[in-house]
Each structure stands twice: as structure tokens, then as C-alpha cells.
Amino acid sequence: MLVTVTGGTGFVGAHSVAAIAGAGHRVRMLVRDPDRAARALAPLGVDPGAVHTVPGDVRDAGAVRAAVRGADAVLHAASVYSFDSRRHAEMRAVNERGTEVVLGEARRAGAGLIVHVSSIVALYPASPARVLDAGSPVGRPRETYMATKAAAEQIARRHQADGAPVVITYPPALLGPHDPNLGDQTARLRDVLRGLTPMWPAGGFPVGDVRDTAALHARLLDGAAGRYFGPGRHLTTREYVAALRAVTGRRLPAVFLPARAMLPVGWLADRLQRVWPWHIPAEYGAIYTCACAVRVAEHAPTGGLAPRPLAETVGDTVRWLRDSGHLTARQAGAVRPDLASVGAR
């Protein structure tokens, strides 16, 4: 099977390419910079020579058309994932316009399966339901990144309603090794271990391993329909910090405050970030997520995959951050990924 992948130089995309190639499929990637493809895939054991690249951007219909021509399946993983207010215009262009272009061109090319990588935040806030499942409505979030993912979700659902072979996946917040761009979630874990986030909003968020979501994407190529949740678990912010303490053996002092009370702080930080050249770790989107995140129903489809132990995910992430020079040995601590008590929920 020939599978075209967008976003293959990103965290989810690169791991998904590795899983798809590992399952014996041929891969074609739409990339803005072919050199980035080699850098993203090499640490995952993917031979760059075995992956064909097509230069282009998801917003360019001509480039997308060339990339999806003759493909049996298309995995649309290209997305700007960030709560950085300086990237709002980029998010709208890539997350919304890019989805419209890719899914439309994939349908016109006759792809037998089109997997749209959405996000669980596209379903927030989940009112009035207090759990999420495949039938949950699209959310109407009051945050730019989340709103662009909700808009992209609406596009994908319109194609589904029209009878197109579109499958939607909802990854949780993802951790794991080999993040080629040090994305938002990995950078946030690094900031915690650097001591930059001693104040936390109460509430929680879903956490999963990028390798599990990649495995789901590869499995769906065997034939699937509908909507699937990436394997993961809901953690309170206290549980998340406790997992980092257990894995690293560090104290990591933290204060937990009501999430909604912290929203004005995040709002002000976002405004300041637009003119401040250095990253501010207090982000409105992260706080807002903790304020409105809910659990995924136990019966929600995950492609038959269960999440790997949280200790393994966190331990592998911290070890990779240390080994790649993003953390010092002191900041990484003991890196003990074998604690049975971590992530037992």
C-alpha cells in the first residue's frame, strides 16, 4: 500500500511514518524541506531512501495534488500545535486551510482511506457531557489553537457525512522520545524539570505516548471507519507532577491553584508574549485545557490498543531530553522508568 503522509517531520507524523513503514507500507511524504525528513526519521530507524518526498506545503493545492496522486491512503498529520500567541495566524492557515486542501485533494485523487489527525481538544469544552466518546460534538473552545483544531474537525466531519472514507483520530497530549521539533508538550515537561513552572492550574488533561498513537495510525490502514481516540489516560495536574517526581527522584516543588482563577494570568501572558522575544511558560491555552478537559469514556474506540505504562513514557521522554542535551543530568534526575506505582490509574 502507498501511503501519503503530511506533517511527517513533526512529532506525531515522524513516529507514524516509522510505524507505517514498519508495517510494510510504502510512504510518500509532503514536506517543505526534504532535509528535515531525513533528520526526523533517522533516529526512528527509518531509511530515508525508503521514503519518497514531495516538496510542498499543505496550503498549496498543486503540491498536495502531486503528493496524493496514486496513493492508496492519506494520513493528514500536518498541524501547528502551539499555545504561543505569536503563531495564531500560522495556526489558522495550516490547521484550517491545510485540512480543507488535503482532504479535498485526497478525495479527488480517489484515496481509499483518509486519516485526519485531529486532537482531543477539538472536542472541548465537552458540555453538557462529562465524558468524551466517538459521538461527542465538536467543541467551541475560546482559545486559538483549540479553535483551529475544532474548525478542522468540522471540515473532516463534513467529508464523513458526505460518505467519504475519512477516519478521524484524537491524540491526547503526547510525550515520548525523539521529538524532532521539541514541540509544545515536550517543551513543557522540560520546563518543569528546569524549575520554570512552580505554579500549576488545578484540573487535568489527557496524556499518551506518541508511539501508541503512531501504532494506531498504522493499524487503521488495515481497514477502518469512524473516529478513534489515541491511547492515553486522564491525569490531574497533581498526578502529572507526581509522576515526574517519581521518575526523576526530584522534589519539584509546586503550588496548585484553581484553573479558572489562573485564566486572567494566562490571558495577560499571551498578550505580553506577542512583544516579548523569549518564551513565557504561562500560557492561556494550557491553563484553559486544564479548566475544561474531561475524561474519555472507557468504551471509546482506540483501535484495540491500550496505553503503555506512564512511567515508561515519562522515563523515555526525560532520558531522551537528557541524552539530546535539552536537560542536564541534574535536571533529569534518576530517570527511573520502572516504578510500578507511576501511572497505575
Rank of each mutant, 00 (worst) to 15 (best):
D162C: 02
G163P: 02
S118A: 14
N95S: 01
G112E: 15
L123P: 09
S136L: 13
D162W: 03
G139A: 12
M91T: 10
A156Q: 08
E100W: 04
G98M: 06
H76M: 07
H159N: 08
G112V: 08
D84H: 06
T99G: 00
G135V: 09
V121R: 05
S136V: 11
G135Y: 06
V131M: 14
A156Y: 11
S79Q: 02
A77T: 03
A147W: 03
S82L: 03
R140Q: 09
E100A: 02
R157P: 02
S82D: 09
H76T: 01
A151E: 05
A134G: 14
Q160M: 11
S118G: 15
I120R: 11
H116C: 09
G139R: 13
L132W: 00
L132C: 06
N95M: 01
Y124I: 10
K149Q: 12
G135M: 08
A89C: 07
L123W: 03
D84N: 04
I155C: 03
A89W: 05
F83E: 08
A111V: 06
G70T: 09
T144C: 11
D162R: 14
R130H: 12
V74C: 11
R158D: 06
V131A: 15
A122I: 05
R157W: 03
A109D: 12
A129N: 11
V115S: 01
